[in-house]
């Protein structure tokens, strides 16, 4: 087992030993906590299973969140994909994989908003991005569940380093820390799934995180609903694009480790009203305030606080 604190170290360990990123993190986890490979792989397989269930549930449920603000958008996309007659040419503009990934991400976030079961990845607010991207990439490149489980380990390794050197919490670092991190994790894992190298994984994650720097966390009425569901849809598009750019050989001039530190610094300098307090940004718009007022009247407080 070898220790790592940076993406650079992680990639170097993988390259030096001719291993995948997932193999490095798996061995680290085995060494640190004294658990067997089989136990760890099965735990990750359980996560994959719940991710899949949450996608399916979101695509089929008619439920709306308690606030009534969220629910049913993933179903709309599926209907549009299956109908295929919405435009002059009979095709949707952004194409198959992009829309399928966004649809799956929204499905998971809608289930989350309805207090359904999901896998935090790295958080609940950002939970749609990783399954959205990975299930779609697997479909595109013909990867199986074993590959997907390994890709989830790689995503986890990138997330651990982000948490160690910046943050994955919207309250601490804004939305860039949640869906930005989720998209970076998904890009690195997606490259591996598609057969890219550890180095390309790091470049893909750097590209996507750079493009999501500065994104604030401004949830309407403080709920993990607006704009979280559609931000996850957009994050999948960012990740898919970064995966293909990296596979094409494009590199990020600023290394991922430095992008992560920059993300942390931006998060710390972000005004408190833009860090999950529902005080600024979209949460402070007239429409958001009106929603907040309506909810305060509609949702009584039987629990006494």
């Amino acid at each position: 087992m070898q220790d790592f604190n940076t993406v650079r170290e992680l990639v170097e360990i993988a390259e030096f030993n001719g291993k995948t990123l997932s193999e490095v993190i798996l061995e680290y986890q085995m060494g640190t906590y004294g658990e067997t490979r089989d136990v760890l792989v099965q735990r990750m397989r359980d996560n994959l299973e719940v991710m899949r269930e949450s996608v399916e549930r979101g695509l089929n449920q008619e439920e709306q969140s308690r606030s009534g603000l969220v629910g049913g958008n993933a179903r709309k996309v599926r209907a549009a994909l299956e109908g295929g007659t919405l435009t002059r040419g009979g095709r949707l503009v952004s194409g198959g994989p992009f829309l399928r990934a966004a649809m799956r991400a929204m499905a998971v976030n809608e289930v989350n908003a309805c207090m359904g079961r999901i896998v935090a990845a790295p958080t609940a607010g950002g939970s749609g991005t990783l399954p959205g991207v990975l299930l779609t990439v697997a479909e595109e490149v013909g990867a199986d569940d074993d590959d997907l489980v390994m890709a989830l380990f790689t995503a986890g390794a990138i997330g651990m380093i982000i948490m160690e050197n910046a943050s994955i919490s919207g309250a601490a670092g804004g939305c860039q820390a949640e869906t930005g991190s989720a998209a970076a994790m998904a890009a690195a894992a997606g490259v591996q799934l598609a057969g890219g190298t550890p180095r390309q994984s790091a470049h893909a994650a750097a590209i996507v995180l750079k493009n999501m720097l500065g994104l604030v966390c401004d949830p309407v009425a403080g709920l993990v609903e607006i704009p979280c569901v559609k931000r996850n849809a957009a994050a999948t598009a960012q990740a898919l694009l970064a995966i293909d750019l990296a596979l094409a050989g494009i590199e990020s001039v600023i290394p991922l480790d430095e992008v992560i530190v920059a993300m942390g610094q931006i998060g710390r300098s972000m005004h408190e009203s833009l860090r999950e307090t529902a005080q600024g940004g979209l949460a402070a718009t007239p429409t958001a305030r009106a929603i907040e007022k309506r909810l305060a009247m509609e949702m009584p407080n039987p629990d006494g606080f």
């Binding site: 735990r43 990750m44 359980d46 996560n47 719940v50 969140s65 289930v111 989350n112 908003a113 309805c114 207090m115 359904g116 079961r117 999901i118 896998v119 935090a120 990845a121 790295p122 958080t123 609940a124 607010g125 939970s127 990783l130 989830l152 380990f153 995503a155 986890g156 997330g159 651990m160 948490m163 994955i168 919490s169 919207g170 309250a171 994790m185 709920l223 993990v224 609903e225």
Partner: peptide
Amino acid sequence: IIGPIMIGPSSS
């Protein structure tokens, strides 16, 4: 990071 399996809506 990948987990926990949880009931929504917020990991924190």
